[in-house]
Design a protein around this nucleic acid. Structure first.
Lengths: 329, 329
DNA sequence: TTGTAGGCGTTATCAC
DNA sequence: GTGATAACGCCTACAA
């Protein structure tokens, strides 16, 4: 059922039908009524593909995510999808995995689909390869990155000061009487490095030397988190607190401690980052740095929509993290 | 950059360029080389929108989900997106919420976007309103429903025998020495009712009368799960086991028990359904009915792709659930 | 107030 | 091997 079909049935031209469909003025009320009725009767549904072609706008945005199964990622995708949906935009969500190859591939897919805008979730997209791909294929549409930034004219970033946040975690540990701390970095992304920097600066301020800090790296899985905690206990039986760069390995580390009858937080305190749902599920509940994922998503969606509508916004927006204290500190 | 632009530069016609782009035969090797080079040089990216218009295929599928933030839903979306992505399909993921209005609205959006196929995640879409909307707007494309079914010619279902699964949970409780059981239903969906039926039949087989069974209903949140457990303890201080229709409220219920110094599983055993990530995070770890979400997703994607390619498949496929025992039983 | 014609970027069908 | 030409479904000047 196309506007031509409806036009033929109504005995008018296709443009008249088009005008009615799009609520354009300058149509006799009687004609409008009649066509509206036919539209209804035949369940007419405008072909967005055809519209996209002529309007040069797909009314779709692309959301690139490393792996949507991570609790904080899915929240971001959810809020962005919902927010953009309100404005009539559909979201093409692509899981890119962590290699540059697949990220570049995903950018190309979005380019072919002619999305009107893009949101890159997380500083994992802050790489040269992604930058080049964006420059080549998506330089004409607004791109918003959460928790990171790329120096390209059409890219804006919504950032969180995780460095300062982790530094505050170190301070919280001190206040609670935990001196000897370890830090576990989840990966090598920009965000991860900021967190590590926060740890280093916090510890240096407390008189520790950079070289003697206990810093580890551990993939974001329950198994690895558990093993990580075992390893730390082995390396440093006198450890009094551990700060993890994300929640999942942290909750698993708590379990490792509980299994060894080490009291949390009395003997060893634990802090995570992301303030995800996991924090309330583990036992004891995990204190975590709220890096404002929800607000960041909503901001990203807002800025993207602003750009789509031609409104201006600063290149970077900074949000500030806050510690949510629970039972593990 | 369109094929016309490339054609002009190369001094050939647009059809020749089109043939090269689509790897069609019957092009002189030399011409092909030359055009390939230009395509590369100018970063040509075919406009999928235009292709969709002429091919009458968007190469997009729609995934309808009540709320992707639920751990088991996001897994499903992830696997379907990945699987269909391998075949060149993009996924339009829409969160519909639980009202019929918004579900119907989402179906219309997918219809307008002319998706080539649809996956409905969960029996929450097994309603008359959704059925009518599909019939009106998406009767020409394959629709696969996970964990449910709609009697429409273009709809296929991938189902899990949750009724039997929950009945087995009752049996497991018996084996472990837990007699007095309560059941908590998460909602009024078809799936929920099947689970309840499993509970009822399992208990009847053990000699309990239907009227005296302890059956409750509770929304899927941590807060409600905690309160639910408190309520059950109040109503039935002698309860020995609780089966929850999903994991999230179950893990929270475990915490309620731990907080009251009630030993899990010795005094009260707990079983959930979904076998989600939460099971391994709470303490003690939650025994849960694996309702095969991952396999179901992959099956759904496979069947959808088969339909898209014109291959036949049975209207319904049944998978069988299995209990994954952890520490709460 | 309505209709005609052209074009959006592709692909497919003929012809040459 | 290659090139016109006509769709695909819609929108929008411009004309009437």
């Amino acid at each position: 059922m196309t506007i031509y079909d409806i036009a033929r049935i109504a005995g008018v031209s296709a443009s008249t039908v088009s005008r009615v469909v799009n609520n354009k003025p300058g149509i006799k009320e009687e004609t409008r009524k009649q066509i509206l009725a036919l539209l209804e009767q035949y369940d007419y549904s405008p072909n967005e593909t055809a519209r996209g072609l002529v309007n040069k706008a797909s009314r779709m945005i692309g959301i690139l995510i490393e792996d949507i199964r991570y609790a904080h990622h899915v929240d971001i995708a959810y809020y962005i999808e919902e927010e953009m949906g309100k404005h009539g935009y559909c979201s093409l969500i692509l899981n890119t995995g962590l290699t540059d190859d697949k990220k570049v591939e995903a950018v190309k897919v979005l380019a072919q689909r002619r999305v009107d805008g893009v949101i890159l979730v997380g500083s994992t997209f802050e790489t040269e390869a992604v930058k080049r791909a964006l420059d080549a294929g998506l330089s004409a549409v607004p791109v918003i990155m959460t928790n990171g930034y790329l120096n390209l004219p059409n890219v804006k970033g919504v950032l969180v000061d995780e460095r300062e946040g982790v530094e505050n975690c170190v301070e919280l540990m001190r206040v609670k009487g935990h001196e000897k701390l370890a830090f576990v970095r989840p990966s090598h992304t920009k965000s991860s490095l900021s967190k590590e920097q926060g740890f280093v600066q916090g510890m240096e301020r407390r008189g520790f030397k950079r070289e003697e800090l206990w810093i580890y790296e551990c993939p974001t899985t329950l198994e690895d988190g558990y093993a990580m905690m075992e390893r730390i206990l082995e390396d440093h039986p006198d450890v009094e607190g551990v700060i993890f760069g994300e929640d999942l390995s942290a909750v698993s580390a708590i379990r490792a401690l509980v299994d060894r009858n080490i009291k949390v937080p009395e003997q060893v305190a634990v802090i995570g980052v992301d303030n995800s749902k996991y924090c309330d599920i583990c036992y004891p509940k995990l204190t975590s740095l709220n890096n404002r994922m929800v607000e960041m998503s909503l901001e990203a969606a807002r800025i993207l929509f602003d750009s789509l509508e031609g409104r201006e916004n600063p290149d970077r927006i900074m949000l500030f993290s806050r510690i949510v204290e629970r039972e593990s500190t």
